[in-house]
């Protein structure tokens, strides 16, 4: 399984990902994606997730292996 990672410094809120992955993403008041869960991608949604990564105009999405946990936030 994989997980979708949003690079918020790159995300421009164009809204393609929320259209391609309505099961995982909604939109906020300003059109930026809102994760509906922890963004774990079930196998059935993998193709759609891949397309979202490929089509993101800001290249803000990545698919990562689930084992890759978050890094420590700060010192």
């Amino acid at each position: 399984m994989s997980r979708l990672h949003v690079d918020w410094t790159a995300c421009d809120g164009r809204g393609l990902c929320a259209e391609l992955l309505p099961e995982l993403l909604a939109e906020d008041d300003w059109g930026y994606p809102v994760p509906k869960g922890d963004l774990t991608v079930p196998p059935a949604l993998e193709p759609a997730a891949r397309q979202a990564v490929d089509r993101c105009p800001a290249l803000a999405l990545r698919l990562t292996a689930v084992s890759a946990e978050r890094a420590p936030a700060s010192s």
Partner: peptide, 16 residues
Amino acid sequence: ARSGRTAFGLPRFAVN
């Protein structure tokens, strides 16, 4: 596509 709007009844990713 840059506008981020849907067009001709097409979703954004389709315009793209």
